[in-house]
Simulated scan of single mutants.
Amino acid sequence: MKKSPKEIAKEVVITLLYAIVAATIIRLFVFETMLVPTGSMIPTINIGDRLFIEKITYQAREPEIGEIVVFWTPFRDERAEQMLRAFDKFMDLFAPSKFKGHVKYVKRLVAKEGDIITLKNVDGNWKLFVNGKVPENLKNVNYQPDGIFKYPNLWKYLDQASRLRDNKTEYRNFLYNIALKNGAELANTIFSIIGGMYPVPYGIPYHEYVDEYLKPKNVDFDDYVWTENGQVYIKIPEGFYFFMGDNSKESLDSRYFGFVPKEAVIGRPILRIWPFQSFGPVQPLPKLNN
């Protein structure tokens, strides 16, 4: 019996609804994508790469040191939000409620809870030492002793500056006093991250991250960052990770913004799907336990 146009239209609508539900489930629990807006992971990952992220592996186990991980920023990165394209904004509508308005970062995991890290100059290259040794997966990566490794009070200053950002006069005075006390470079670093005034109208409201993730767990910066014989040491609190970009000179990473809560982890970038000429795997597949 031939179906009527109305019946055909109804079947098409039902099929589309099933497809949308299936796609939503896959997006929420299995796979998603991200567009890389910066060069923090060059040469492994480049500006404009679109990555395919699988979310199953880290539901079964924790990420390992040396793995490249995609995570939600635990703060609102207002500049990165301006760089998102329409497709990414639409896909992020499915983000967990606590990360609405946040963006994705892709970095390499370099330390986990309980680890103590520091940067040391080894034959002219700065290497990350984790619990007294350079992890095998990080031996070929060189880092810059910037951010918290250069200014042990950076995170505290970011918190203070962020709370003053809406009061332009107090904010300017704060930055001015930092420049007098610690030098213009530190003041410029704080301003470049927090933003809030011309020529950097957008930035990171850092105090929101401190109030939501650190204070409830009694994480005080002074308990986790210290200096011994001129060497800066950092201990990773329980429930947090420390991420850094391979392109250390151009990476806004944990050296600058601090610890990332475990719940912010999304998954593993496994495939570069754009540009087509660079199509292929981003990092090796995880090893399966026998």
Rank of each mutant, 00 (worst) to 15 (best):
L186I: 08
P237N: 06
I53A: 00
M197V: 13
A184W: 02
Q144S: 07
V36P: 03
Y241S: 04
L28Q: 12
T15P: 03
D49S: 10
V232Q: 09
L28T: 08
E250T: 02
V265M: 11
I193P: 09
K89V: 09
G230E: 14
G101I: 08
W226G: 06
F191A: 05
I20D: 08
R163D: 10
Y143W: 07
G196H: 07
Y213V: 01
P37H: 06
V134K: 03
E32M: 08
I56P: 03
R163S: 13
D211P: 04
E67A: 03
F52D: 09
K55D: 09
I42M: 10
V210F: 12
D222Y: 05
L128H: 01
D77M: 02
K10F: 10
E67D: 14
L17T: 12
Y206N: 08
F71W: 08
G196T: 01
N131P: 00
E7H: 10
S251D: 03
A161I: 02
R61Y: 08
R27N: 13
V265K: 01
E11K: 15
I45G: 05
K168L: 12
A80K: 08
L154H: 10
N229Q: 10
P74A: 03
P269L: 04
K6T: 07
V200S: 05
L28S: 11
V103I: 09
P269A: 09
G196A: 06
I65C: 05
N290F: 15
R165P: 04
I47A: 07
M83V: 14
L128I: 10
L84Q: 13
E11P: 08
F240P: 03
T57M: 07
N153R: 02
S192Q: 13
V232G: 09
F52M: 15
Q144C: 04
G124V: 11
Y171P: 00
M197Q: 12
G114R: 00
S40P: 07
T189M: 06
P199F: 11
I65F: 07
S97F: 15
K249H: 07
Y198A: 14
F87C: 01
R163T: 02
M244D: 09
V210R: 02
P135G: 09
I190Y: 09
H102P: 03
V21E: 07
K112E: 12
I178N: 00
R61K: 15
R165Q: 14
D220W: 14
P145F: 03
V134H: 04
N188R: 11
R268W: 04
L180I: 05
I116M: 10
F240I: 00
P216F: 03
K112N: 11
K150R: 15
S254T: 06
D166P: 00
G39N: 12
A9T: 13
I178F: 04
I266Y: 02
Y151G: 00
Y202P: 02
G66F: 01
N140T: 13
L180C: 00
Y143T: 00
T169A: 13
M1S: 13
G183I: 03
M83I: 14
D166F: 13
E136A: 14
W155S: 08
I68N: 02
A19C: 07
M41W: 04
L158N: 04
G203F: 12
A187W: 02
